[in-house]
Design a protein around this nucleic acid. Structure first.
Lengths: 198, 198, 198, 198
DNA sequence: TATGAATGAGTATTCATTCAT
DNA sequence: GATGAATGAATACTCATTCAT
């Protein structure tokens, strides 16, 4: 029967290693050799588990997306009001509790950059963004339910709020990487929420 | 006597060419060969005018920074109220009137990515951001002058607003590049201003 | 499991190939491509085994140094008197019995030239020279033991003899490469020894 | 009629500049750009005065050769005995009175290295060596005149002495450049002469 | 004569990917 | 599954030489 497969763990290790290297050297700097070294594996093994380097990057999109989903679910578990859920969503993305977060943030920004020239990366990146946007839309719809029903807020205005939050979060990521010196250390969900108020 | 110098024009051409190529292929993809081809120059000439590839990138930071300054100055020329000036600032960055804008935006985001691994790029990027932040601070201080004097707004809250605007603008750039499909085509200065209201 | 390592053989092959090419084209002329071709290897492989071109040169310093040591040991094996040992030392360096010698000599001279501008090469070159000098010192000390004890030769004069032999040998190398036409084909150890006599 | 020609001074300046740069960076490192900078001239001008880079090197062979000749003539002016003349020859080459000497020595060694791969350089180098050898031969012949006539020294032995001196001087040059740490600071002509005694 | 821009071939080095074991 | 050697194309950068002024 041979030894038991460990494909999925190895793949996760490799994706993890790439993100670690990318956090310091960027995507181009994250050579297969460097990733292998970081993961404690032989270079040849990387391509046994991933067809191309791009595939590892795509794997990291998936993993990052899953982590965010997981964090939101865990944070919203006890949320009851629509506001709590919205806060859970924002906190899941903006808080930098864990040490791994920094790497994740850099990786996310790098993915955004690579999306410029790698169509497949762009597709995966967009897909992840769409998912987040869909969730945010639902949450905001609930949050502004009353206003919507009263006609004090129309669909277009809601969309604008959605886009607004998305952009802010993306920018907070970008700046937190290289411009932390001139940015506040942390953003409170409350603060962002207050800007959305009507 | 001798051949007249054309260094500054050539340098500008090269920086321009790099931004054009980067807009499609990213920084790594913007090879010296590709830049030379885009500029219609011999590859060797690039290094006659710029010591390293990084220097071209640094040149583009300066150029982008200058363009933004120029746009703000031109837009704020007839601005009288502090609100008009603030709008001029935001419009200068968010409007995508000219065709060159898209390239500029991509270049700016690429610079942010490269800042992760190139200390010199980070320094230049931060310097440009600091300048913008300083201007924005002044503008917001004027804009909220009354509140500040009345004590309804403190320094920390003002700083938060500054950071907030900076992050939003940066994120709007990032998303406009690869995720324009899911983002609104344009952002009105009024819209952003409304979020800042007290 | 896995492919067996062959690093040390490959490294030796590459060093050998560099010396062969250098013997004809000099250090600069010994391009990585040329070395690879001479060794029958792919260019990329050279850098898999040596980080830089300089490292190959440093490898050749070590190799040459070892060859000389080996030759001396083999020649002095049956030497009993201090004079025989001294002759063994000189012969080990000046005789050109083997075919490989010519390459070795050229390589050695090239290393001396490169030492001018490559500090690391200079260090390695000096280290090798120091070792040889130390050995020569011992040998001459034994050879002139009687005179030293009688006070007919002082330390400074001994040092002068050491330096004298070193210089002569180095010069014989240099001239044997390009000026063999005007130099004698071979130098006898006896001849050199006679100049040292008191 | 135009301005007066200054070809020969310019040529000398350029040769001088090349030797200065070579003393630090070697022949390959002595780029035309670097030579031009050192000479305070525009790069293009170098090729107006010298067809190729090699020509400058050949020019330096000539110049070095002339300097040595000049030094010998000046030192031997008041020499009366054959021994004095021989000392003048040796001193002309080994003394390092002037500051320019170091550069000259390095240049000479570099020329020897380049002779390996540049036939034209080899020819010029050999020619210069031959000239020196011829002079040395004459001097030694005079010096050992009595022995030769008495048959206590034959032609072959004389030649050996000539070659011996040539080799020693060349080696003293080589080692003085990079191995001055392990070599004596200066060589006295007397010292060398004593080795030649019969 | 002189200047400095322009050319294009050449170089060391990196690296994703493949292959032999 | 795993190892590590091997491949070859691509890249930034250098530089002798030429050219326009």
């Amino acid at each position: 029967m041979g030894r038991p497969s460990n494909k999925s763990e190895r793949r996760a290790e490799i994706v993890q290693a790439m993100m670690q290297v990318m956090a310091v050297r960027g995507y181009e700097g994250a050579s297969i050799q460097a990733i292998a070294k970081q993961a404690g594996l032989a270079p040849g093994l990387i391509h046994y588990h991933f067809k191309t380097k791009q595939d590892i990057l795509l794997g990291s999109v998936t993993q990052l997306s899953n982590v965010l989903k997981g964090r939101y679910l865990s944070l919203s578990e006890n949320a009851e009001t629509s506001e709590d859920k919205l806060k859970a969503f924002i906190t899941a993305r903006l808080s930098k509790g864990e040490g791994a977060s920094q790497q994740a943030v850099v990786a996310w920004v790098m993915i955004g950059s690579e999306a410029v020239r790698q169509p497949e990366v762009k597709a995966a990146y967009l897909e992840a963004l769409r998912e987040q946007k869909a969730l945010l839309e639902d949450l905001l719809q609930d949050y502004f339910d009353t206003f919507l029903k009263k006609g004090k807020l129309n669909k277009k205005e809601l969309n604008s709020k959605v886009a607004f939050v998305m952009a802010f979060m993306e920018g907070a990521f970008s700046l937190s990487i290289t411009a932390q010196e001139i940015m506040p250390n942390s953003w409170a969900a409350d603060e962002l929420l207050s800007k959305l108020k009507i």
